[in-house]
């Protein structure tokens, strides 16, 4: 079943086309990967789907609702949460406050404190609850951003390079975390350059280049797709030179 789809999604900045007539289908209950070389339009398409950028044309349909061009907070309230490529935490606020602000809408006033605490505990951040977000080590900041997004109780989670800058152990932990979300019924879309993560985590992969979809399918089929190899490595005669 399709949870989110885009129809001829198009975004240009002045003359530069970032997303070009993109048709995407995000299946419910799966982890979908979006990959592509730098500048392929991955983050811009994320932004269009989460309201940070307004698409030039095209449609974004979530749960049978047309969410094209809605403000970010409305989209979040409908059930889409996201993290950012470069961390965007509430730096001067504590770990606890970061989660509590996000949890407010999905928790009753009496339970807010307790729920936020439980949530931090579940994500292994309870020990750091009183630390300011900016004082956490980088890996935990990444984890906190995911915790904050998940605190809004989304149906669909967009992760923009969740493993960037993490070491192997931390990457492994993030992968397990994402899997556990999926197992509890969440739909996840991941942008990532770490191919190990993408190939192991995702059931479905979409490859973008120059704002267009050039391939999609299972990890195996994408890995062997000549167009994908070309996008990443260049054409053979280029490589031979």
């Amino acid at each position: 079943m399709t949870l989110l789809s885009t129809h001829r999604l198009h975004k240009d900045f002045g003359g530069i086309v970032a997303v070009n007539d993109l048709d995407l289908n995000i299946e419910k209950g799966f982890i979908t990967g979006i990959i592509g070389p730098n500048g392929a339009g991955k983050t811009t398409s994320f932004n269009c789907m989460t309201g940070l950028d307004v698409p030039t044309s095209g449609q974004v349909i979530f749960n049978d609702i047309d969410i094209t061009g809605l403000p970010t907070y409305r989209i979040n309230r409908l059930g889409i949460a996201r993290t950012f490529q470069n961390l965007r935490l509430f730096k001067e606020m504590t770990v606890f406050e970061n989660v509590r602000v996000a949890k407010h809408r999905t928790s009753s006033a009496g339970n807010l404190q307790k729920d936020s605490g439980l949530w931090l505990e579940k994500l292994g951040l309870w020990t750091y609850r009183d630390e300011r977000a900016k004082d956490l080590p980088y890996g935990l900041q990444k984890r906190l951003e995911i915790a904050r997004a998940m605190a809004t109780n989304p149906k669909l989670l967009f992760l923009d390079e969740p493993a960037a800058g993490l070491n192997q152990t931390e990457t492994q932990e993030i992968m397990e975390l994402i899997r556990s979300f999926r197992d509890s019924g969440l739909t996840v879309v991941v942008i990532e350059h770490d191919m190990h993560l993408i190939m192991n985590l995702c059931q479905h992969i979409t490859v973008l280049n120059f704002g267009q979809k050039i391939a999609e399918g299972s990890p195996e089929s994408v890995r062997n797709d000549p167009q994908v190899i070309e996008a990443y490595l260049g054409k053979e005669d280029h490589a031979a030179r």
Binding site: F90, K91, R148, T152
Partner: peptide, 24 residues
């Protein structure tokens, strides 16, 4: 109050505040 924390969140990062559902 929650309102006060929401204002602080906006000061810290307005886009992020929107992305967690605050009507900034």
């Amino acid at each position: 109050s929650h309102w006060g924390r929401g204002l602080e969140a906006i000061r810290e990062d307005e886009l992020a505040a929107q992305s967690v559902g605050l009507n900034t």
